[in-house]
């Protein structure tokens, strides 16, 4: 449906699953299309030690969430939160049409909401 990189990750996500010893748990939903994710974040207060997700959604939101969790490890919360929306969408492995930007943005928006106090 999309390219192999996207489809492989959709069918075999690497960060999908529940985390027991999380520091932050936050959920996000795209109400117009039914995408729902939970992010589990393990952090030393500054950097991300690990991140996992659970949920349902379209291919773009699932793949974006899985990539986001994997790429976040070792990064600072502040840098992740403050990254540019457009650059984030453009870094996705396939070109995104305007109508699908919300799908790709779901993990970043969810992360920002969950780490507002951090």
């Amino acid at each position: 449906m999309y390219n192999d990189e996207v489809m492989d990750r959709y069918q075999n996500p690497v960060k999908n699953g529940k985390m027991e010893n999380f520091d932050v748990k936050t959920d996000g939903a795209s109400t117009t299309c039914g995408d729902k994710i939970i992010l589990y974040i393990k952090t030393d207060g500054k950097k991300i030690e690990d991140m996992k997700w659970q949920g349902e959604g379209c291919i773009l939101s699932i793949v974006s969430t899985d990539l986001f969790c994997e790429n976040a490890i070792g990064k600072e919360i502040k840098d992740l939160k403050e990254q540019d929306d457009l650059a984030f969408v453009e870094s996705f492995p396939v070109k995104i049409s305007p109508g699908r930007i919300n799908c790709v943005m779901l993990p970043l928006r969810t992360f920002r909401r969950g780490t507002k106090e951090k």
Partner: peptide
């Protein structure tokens, strides 16, 4: 089941315009 937005995007790539969602 594929999400309906993915189906609509797939069809959009072939110039077939359908609605998706709720």
């Amino acid at each position: 089941v594929y999400h309906s937005h993915d189906i609509a995007t797939f069809l959009d790539d072939r110039n077939v315009y359908v609605r998706s969602g709720y």
